[in-house]
Design a protein around this nucleic acid. Structure first.
Length: 583
DNA sequence: GCTATAATAT
DNA sequence: TATATTATAG
């Protein structure tokens, strides 16, 4: 930061001067030229001839640069890849350049988050103005951050960090790691606000996206639940911007959640006469609970599985269902499956989902929810790497589509929308009184339990309205930080729905899901555990019915490189499960 | 590293 | 307003 001309020089007059530019181009000639030109603009230039090198530099000191200019074609790493990485990790504006002006390429660049795409030869005037990207970006962030505060966006007063700029070379730095203002400081709020010069000191809150949580869980599983600690988890997670505190906090929540879960399970198993009397605790505790949940479902669903003293017998052809599901989920071209029932996996699924839909009484507004439940937006064959990132940030809003008009929304090139319009069935479902009061009651009780985790899958944009706008822009909580560089798989759908299927979605499901998120491939069928496990999976599938489609986004291996595949590892599960549930 | 609690967000 | 989530203080 020392070198941040940005801050060291008199701000106003100096502004564009001192902009810290990182130029990446494997062509040394161009590299030189650019360096020279940029210097002429009074920018502070750092050059790299390798993308990997650039990335390294950025990782070492991401706050040391304001903007990146990168060539598209490079030997070691595709410029787009770099772009993506930068968008993800540093969230710096990136300008792509190449000699090739082919629209598709440019588009690709932009889709990946490039804030500009320059064609070589590049001229002075183009470089002279690159600061605007930095400026604009910060301005947006600041505005989203606190639009109502009426900040001074002029010039360079774009720093959010309340601390003294002098010790932070990065004028534009949005508070990131340190400078953790203590609450005490925050108490003097006026401090922050009154200095038009500063931005309010708010610590950006980490949003535990699915992906993030997934990493978290994975780490936990790896470490072993009894040995986990924030630090270890943090290391394993390998998310640069995350702090130990963040993890600690999340861990706390996680534990809380699990313990509540267990408690609830215990209760249920003891109160509802349904389950097997034996060993209610341990993983079995959840097990029994599961049974309960399934049981209910069975009543309605065509399929059935029965359980006998602790061992579940799966009788439904989970496989096919699973297959169907996947098909849908991954179907790359299924542009509009609208209303075509044929696409809906299986009658069972429908049934179960119907069942689950029976309870609009949850907190969610039924109307909205109903729609949400059936509308699916599925990113198809595209991997995350192909989603627009950068400026948009990685957060993908899956718009909930109510009306056609809305469906059109964020046509983000790569996203396909699969709509399953089942409004009809919904209607019937809703009027279908297939649940017993007890069930209802049970549901209601249950809800709070997983409520917390629910939200992990959810994101700030929870209303349709906002979802619409949010797509291109950014939701507040995300904006809040540079940190939210984690891809976040979100879906309003799942959101809405989850709150719904109280009867089907057991706490266990959630728990399970959480665990599963971190799971690996199941290999050797074990004993009951496997059954248990499979059952759970099935149950899970069933329970989620259509939502599954949605949820599966989370599991789609293609979307998350690190997570190898998706049958969930029973071993992992059980181990964690045990340690967790052994009260 | 953990728990309790304040601060914020929804 | 009540709850849930995350940051911080002990």
């Amino acid at each position: 930061m020392d070198n941040g001309c940005f801050s060291s020089s008199p701000r106003h007059d100096a502004f564009p001067a001192g902009l810290r530019v990182l130029v990446v181009d494997d062509d040394l000639t161009w590299l030189r030229i650019l360096e020279k030109m940029l210097k002429k603009c009074l920018y502070e230039v750092t050059t790299c001839c390798l993308a990997t090198e650039a990335l390294k530099k950025l990782r070492e000191r991401k706050e040391a640069y304001d903007i990146v200019i990168s060539d598209v074609n490079m030997p070691d790493m595709d410029g787009f890849k770099l772009l993506e990485q930068v968008g993800l990790e540093m969230d710096l504006p990136v300008i792509m350049m190449s000699v090739d002006g082919e629209t598709s390429r440019v588009m690709k660049g932009v889709q990946h988050g490039a804030c500009d795409y320059l064609l070589k030869p590049i001229r002075m005037k183009e470089l002279r103005n690159i600061w605007q990207h930095v400026f604009r970006k910060r301005m947006h962030e600041a505005r989203d951050f606190e639009s109502h505060e009426g900040f001074d966006f002029e010039g360079i007063h774009l720093m959010r960090n309340g601390s003294d700029h002098s010790d932070d070379g990065n004028l534009f730095a949005v508070e990131e790691t340190t400078s953790i203002k203590k609450r005490k400081d925050a108490d003097n709020k006026h401090d922050d606000k009154e200095f038009g010069d500063h931005f309010p000191t708010k610590k950006a809150r980490v949003v535990w996206s699915v992906d993030l949580h997934q990493k978290f869980v994975k780490a936990v599983n790896q470490i072993g639940f009894d040995k986990v600690g924030p630090k270890k988890i943090l290391d394993l997670m390998n998310v640069p911007w995350l702090t130990r505190e963040n993890v600690a906090s999340h861990l706390q929540k996680y534990r809380l959640y699990l313990s509540r879960l267990q408690k609830e399970n215990d209760q249920k198993s003891s109160s509802s006469g349904i389950k097997h009397s034996d060993s209610p605790s341990k993983d079995l505790g959840s097990f029994s609970f599961l049974n309960t949940a399934n049981k209910q479902q069975n009543d309605i669903a065509t399929d059935s599985f029965s359980y006998s003293d602790g061992t579940l017998l799966i009788q439904m052809d989970a496989t096919s269902y699973e297959g169907d599901l996947k098909g849908i989920v991954s179907e790359p071209t299924t542009e509009k499956i609208r209303a075509s029932t044929s696409e809906i996996p299986d009658p069972k699924v429908q049934k179960s989902s119907q069942k689950s839909l029976n309870k609009p009484f949850t907190s969610v507004e039924s109307s909205e929810a109903n729609h949400a439940v059936f509308d699916c937006t599925i990113p198809t064959e595209y991997s995350w790497s192909e989603f627009p990132k950068g400026p948009l940030k990685e957060e993908q809003k899956t718009p909930v589509q109510l009306e056609d008009s809305l469906c059109q929304l964020p046509l983000h090139g790569t996203q396909h929308h699969i709509q399953i319009d089942q409004s009809q069935s919904i209607a019937s479902i809703n009027s279908n009184p297939s649940i017993t009061e007890e069930e209802v009651a049970a549901k209601l009780e249950t809800k709070p339990l997983y409520a917390g985790y629910e939200s992990d899958y959810v994101n700030p944009v929870s209303s349709i309205g906002s979802a619409v706008e949010a797509f291109p822009s950014q939701s507040k909580s995300l904006m809040v930080s540079d940190q939210s560089s984690e891809p976040t798989f979100t879906s309003n759908l799942s959101l809405k729905t989850q709150g719904f299927n109280l009867d089907c979605i057991s706490d266990l499901d959630f728990y399970q899901r959480n665990l599963l998120l971190g799971g690996e491939v199941a290999s050797a069928p074990l004993d009951e555990d496997l059954n248990f496990f499979l059952l759970q999976s099935e149950c899970y599938n069933m329970n989620f019915g259509l939502q599954n489609i949605d949820m599966s986004e989370y599991y789609d291996p293609r979307l998350t490189a690190e997570v190898p595949s998706h049958f969930y590892d029973s071993a992992d599960y059980s181990s964690v499960d045990q340690s967790l549930f052994i009260a």
